[in-house]
Computed example of a mutant assay.
Amino acid sequence: MKNPEKIKVGISIGDLNGIGAEIIIKTFEDTRMLDFCTPIIFASNKTMMFFKKHFKSSINFQGVNDVSHTVENKINVVNVWKENVNIVFGKEDANIGKYAVKSLESATQALKKGLIDVLVTAPINKHNIQSQEFNFPGHTDYLAKELNGNSLMFMVTDELKVGLLTDHVPVKDVPQHITKQRIIEKIETVYTSLVKDFRINRPKIAVLAINPHAGDNGVIGDEDDKILRPTLQEIKESGKLVYGPYSADSFFGSSNYKNFDAVMASYHDQGLIPFKTISFGEGVNFTAGLNKVRTSPDHGIAYEIAGKNQANESSFKEAIFTAIKIFRNRNEYEKASKNPLKKQPKKI
Rank of each mutant, 00 (worst) to 15 (best):
I124Q: 07
N125T: 05
N125K: 02
N125P: 07
K126S: 07
H127S: 08
H127D: 10
N128G: 02
I129L: 04
I129K: 04
I129S: 07
Q130K: 15
E133T: 12
G138P: 12
H139F: 09
Y142V: 08
L143S: 10
A144E: 12
A144R: 10
K145N: 13
N148S: 13
N150S: 13
F154G: 00
M155I: 13
M155T: 11
D158C: 05
L160H: 08
K161W: 03
V162R: 06
G163D: 09
L164G: 02
T166E: 00
D167V: 05
D167A: 15
V171D: 01
K172F: 08
Q176P: 00
I178W: 11
T179R: 03
K180A: 05
Q181S: 14
Q181A: 15
Q181R: 13
Q181C: 02
R182H: 03
E185G: 01
K186G: 04
I187L: 14
I187N: 00
I187R: 00
T189F: 02
V195S: 10
P203H: 05
K204D: 11
V207L: 05
A209N: 02
I210E: 04
N217Y: 13
N217S: 14
V219M: 11
V219I: 14
G221W: 05
D222A: 10
E223I: 12
D224Y: 02
K226M: 11
I227Q: 06
T231Q: 08
Q233H: 06
K240G: 01
K240Y: 06
L241K: 13
Y246S: 01
Y246D: 01
S247P: 13
F252A: 04
S254D: 09
